[in-house]
Design a protein around this nucleic acid. Structure first.
Lengths: 344, 344
DNA sequence: CATCACCGAGAAAGCGTTTTCTCAGAAGCG
DNA sequence: CGCTTCTGAGAAAACGCTTTCTCGGTGATG
């Protein structure tokens, strides 16, 4: 039997014995070091192949001081946005031989710091995705997390690229689109209170209100999933608004489903817009007007920024800002006469 | 400065020096070994806290022979089914202090074996999710992957729990439902050819045909995403079938969207069913009749099986079989008179 | 008072690699 | 032929931790 090591797995030592050389030589051969006699190299390779030897990555990591793994912390793995970021990140990282370790904080912001630290120590770098923690807390832990890439949050720390989507501009574009269609009474179905992207949307709407004093913009409480939108039907109908800006596509879909059940026509009676342009958005009935965020690309960019950090390359553009693109589909249409005047 | 080690990070040695004890003692204290003098322990803890010492997991892994990480290989991270499994797995594993490393094979079956091996070596166990590789290849690599949990595939190897969804039964339930509604000409929009779950559906349909000779069941080529369903509109209309069994909910949604564009009424003209019951399914218009698979629970179960393997517990139920539950919604309805007779 | 058992902490040996250091032996040169 | 230089491979250190081994020192017991 060749099983010698305590773990039961065959190691470099087994190969060394079989090939009649030292571990050092086996290591050299496995790493393509050419200062080794071709004949011996061949013998080592034969032995390795015969034993099906594969280097233990943990030992390797310890010696090399790197794990070829990056971590990502997301607030909620059920959210399509984070799924897409994860996908883009994983795909891009894989092309450079890196793997991704995931940590889901389940929207528990108090856990984020611990999760992030733990994940960081296991990996060569960390992507912190839309953290829910406070600015103060973020600033405090950021230094210990380098190399770090931030998504949808910013920090004053240097060397921490930030990829942010301009939700403020996006929501203004959507509101503008509705106003162009004649809507004068809008309502915003807000997202999770701790979400920075929700704050950006709110700021965008404030700016919009300032620029369009004739338009009413109501604020309604919401969340980030289907059910939130579905449950908001009453509040939406009560508001008398004809143009609804949902926090994201999921909320918009839930809302449209609820409106459909009530016999309210979209966009005949009420126009609905989403945000994100998830793949489903083009297959709803009616198809969903939304603001498209190149979200998978964002995950990919996150990796490229991370790679630059790991390789200590000069980074000409540390971080970037993504502009959502207005995607006009069938869920938004001309405003009908305001319902407050409908009884006349 | 306390930075001594080559990596720049502070290690156990720094704490030892600061507390005036040996590394061994620091290690003992950090691991809650009570054979150490309380006063010394306090001194060590104080030093550790002051230096913000956190044990290096790589060194720890090497010494302990475990990484507290499990790997998962999925054919396509963009597929909601695998996302849900990942979510359930990650959540359950996290509760036991384990993290998940992901590997996406992008439906390239030739990559799967390498990916699986690599991921396995980095982790304490592996979840192989609906692998596309051949049975022969699977059998070949399975022994080297233990502890291993298989999803939607089976193996002859012992000690490899298999979690499989009974797609065959599910598709028969759906077909039966349509036949009960009076449909006599059905069509199946197939999934990826290499998918085992697709094979199971096909087998189920064969059984169904045998049991219902009066019902026609046509086979149409397809895939697993929206676009597949959307592009299948012509084929579906040409087939003359009034009841369409889509491979999954995504395909069904794409198809319904396409039918809607053509002015075909669902379920008035054609009934459509999906599979999986993804969250979106209850918010489509019309809401989607489908077969619900407890997919997140499946991910969770995968962890429980894995945990039993890692802990070498006796496992009373190595693997299990999940029965989809028929979820009748609005996309299926009574068959109208066969269109072949409509010209009369 | 001497011996034994025991307790607690340091020394050292792993865990599986990579990489530096070291040193035979061969080759080259005068 | 003797010296130096170079090549290539083994010995050993390092990576950061856990854990066994060892042993000085204390308290207990006969």
């Amino acid at each position: 039997m060749v099983r010698r090591s305590a773990t039961g797995r065959i190691g470099i030592a087994d190969v060394a014995v079989k090939a009649g050389v030292s571990h050092a030589t086996v290591s050299r051969v496995m790493n393509g070091n050419f200062t080794v006699d071709p004949e011996i190299a061949a013998r080592v390779r034969a032995a390795a192949a015969e034993l099906k030897y594969q280097p233990n990555p943990v030992g390797r990591s310890l010696a090399l001081g790197k794990t070829d793994t990056i971590g990502i912390v997301v607030p909620d793995l059920a959210n399509p946005t984070f799924q897409a970021i994860l996908r883009g990140l994983s795909r891009a990282a894989a092309q450079d031989g890196y793997r991704v370790l995931i940590a889901d904080s389940f929207e528990v912001s108090s856990e984020e710091a611990i999760l992030a630290g733990e994940a960081r120590r296991r990996c060569d770098g960390l992507v912190l995705c839309a953290p829910r923690m406070s600015d103060a807390e973020l600033e405090e832990i950021v230094p210990s997390l380098h190399p770090l890439v931030l998504i949808n949050r910013t920090t004053t720390a240097a060397d921490v690229p930030s990829l942010v989507v301009d939700y403020g501009q996006g929501v203004q574009d959507l509101a503008g689109h509705l106003v162009d269609l004649g809507h004068t009474r809008l309502a915003f179905l807000a997202g999770p209170p701790r979400s920075a992207s929700n704050r950006l949307r709110l700021q965008g709407l404030e700016a919009f209100k300032a620029a369009h004093p004739q338009v009413e913009v109501l604020m309604l409480e919401g969340g980030s999933d289907f059910d939130t939108g579905h449950e908001a039907v009453d509040a939406v109908l009560d508001s008398g608004a004809t143009g609804i800006l949902a926090f994201n596509d999921l909320v918009a879909m839930g809302l449209m489903s609820g409106l459909h059940e009530r016999g309210v026509d979209v966009p005949g009676d009420i126009s609905v817009t989403g945000f994100d342009d998830i793949p489903f958005a083009r297959y709803t009935t009616p198809t969903l007007t939304t603001a498209a965020v190149p979200i998978t690309e964002l995950g990919q960019q996150a990796w490229h920024q991370m790679r630059a950090l790991i390789r200590k390359e000069e980074n000409d553009a540390p971080g970037s800002r993504y502009q959502p693109r207005l995607e006009i589909r069938a869920s938004s249409g001309p405003a009908k006469a305001p319902r407050t005047a409908a009884h006349g």
